[in-house]
Each structure stands twice: as C-alpha cells, then as structure tokens.
Computed example of a mutant assay.
Amino acid sequence: MAWVVLVEESEGLGRDRWRWGMTPIVAGPFGDFDSAADAALRLTRDYRPQHPWSERDRNAFRISPSEYIVRVVGATADFHFRVTVAEHITPGTGAPA
C-alpha cells in the first residue's frame, strides 16, 4: 500500500478560462498514512499554486484528517486549492481493458 499527496487547484488564464484541475502527485509515495498526512500539512503552507501570482495572505482549513482547503488571497482575486492524502491503489496504465 502506498500513500501520496494530491493537489487540486484553479488552472488556466483569464477568468472565463479557469478550470479546476489536479496536479501530478505532489508528494510520495509514502509507506504509511501518517507520513503522507505530515507532508500534506506542510504543503498547506509551502505549496505555491498557479494562481494568484501575487500572494498576499493564506488561510488553511482541515476538512478531515486527510484533506485541507487553502484560501489564497491575491492582489486582485482570491483562489483556493485542496490538498488530499490518498491511497494509490493502481498504477496508471491507461484506459480500462
């Protein structure tokens, strides 16, 4: 069993082109949940999202033991990203057969 940390955030340019997307695995694999959870907590402080470019403030909220929402205040707009601890159960092999 392997644990990883995933980040979902706003992507794209221009207000009409933003979409919610998942970045590649940000941290891991870890051999246990607690190590992955520690890394996820650190990312609430250290991860630099694509938006905003000019961060002014940041507030992190624990949703569950494995999930955080982080609000990032920029110069002209606010954004958020989600940090989640996940169990990696299958390697990426493409579409199901």
Results as ranks from 00 to 15, higher is better:
9 E>Q: 06
4 V>M: 10
29 P>W: 09
90 T>N: 06
39 A>L: 12
96 P>M: 07
62 R>K: 06
77 A>T: 11
68 Y>H: 07
55 E>K: 12
51 H>S: 05
33 F>Y: 12
32 D>S: 10
56 R>K: 12
78 D>C: 10
54 S>Q: 13
60 A>Y: 02
66 S>C: 08
35 S>Q: 13
64 S>T: 06
41 L>S: 03
32 D>C: 11
2 A>P: 13
64 S>P: 02
43 L>V: 08
15 R>N: 00
63 I>E: 04
45 R>N: 13
13 L>F: 03
85 V>C: 04
83 V>G: 00
29 P>R: 06
56 R>N: 10
26 V>D: 04
51 H>G: 01
59 N>L: 10
29 P>Q: 06
78 D>F: 07
31 G>Q: 15
26 V>M: 09
70 V>G: 09
9 E>L: 01
64 S>R: 03
76 T>E: 03
63 I>Q: 01
61 F>G: 00
49 P>L: 01
93 T>L: 15
78 D>I: 08
79 F>I: 03
24 P>Y: 07
83 V>W: 03
47 Y>S: 02
73 V>N: 13
24 P>C: 00
80 H>W: 15
17 R>M: 00
70 V>P: 06
26 V>Q: 09
71 R>T: 14
24 P>L: 01
59 N>I: 09
30 F>Y: 15
79 F>S: 04
56 R>A: 06
61 F>W: 04
91 P>Y: 14
22 M>F: 07
96 P>Y: 08
96 P>R: 08
52 P>I: 04
41 L>D: 04
80 H>S: 14
80 H>Q: 14
52 P>K: 07
46 D>I: 11
55 E>N: 11
7 V>F: 04
53 W>M: 11
76 T>I: 02
41 L>T: 04
68 Y>E: 03
97 A>W: 11
73 V>K: 15
66 S>D: 13
61 F>P: 00
73 V>D: 15
30 F>H: 13
93 T>F: 15
5 V>L: 08
10 S>L: 11
48 R>C: 12
37 A>R: 02
44 T>A: 13
73 V>I: 15
96 P>H: 06
4 V>Q: 12
88 H>M: 15
16 D>C: 01
68 Y>F: 12
92 G>F: 14
12 G>N: 01
71 R>A: 14
79 F>C: 02
77 A>H: 15
46 D>L: 12
25 I>W: 09
34 D>N: 07
93 T>P: 06
39 A>S: 14
64 S>L: 03
81 F>W: 06
31 G>E: 15
57 D>C: 05
88 H>S: 14
8 E>S: 07
39 A>V: 12
63 I>R: 02
81 F>S: 04
67 E>Y: 01
65 P>H: 11
23 T>A: 01
27 A>P: 04
52 P>Q: 08
22 M>Y: 08
93 T>Q: 14
91 P>S: 14
84 T>P: 05
88 H>I: 13
83 V>S: 00
57 D>W: 15
87 E>D: 08
85 V>K: 05
49 P>E: 02
15 R>K: 00
67 E>N: 04
25 I>M: 08
5 V>T: 08
33 F>I: 01
8 E>R: 08
59 N>T: 11
14 G>K: 02
7 V>Y: 05
65 P>S: 11
60 A>I: 01
94 G>W: 00
43 L>T: 04
75 A>F: 13
38 D>H: 03
81 F>G: 03
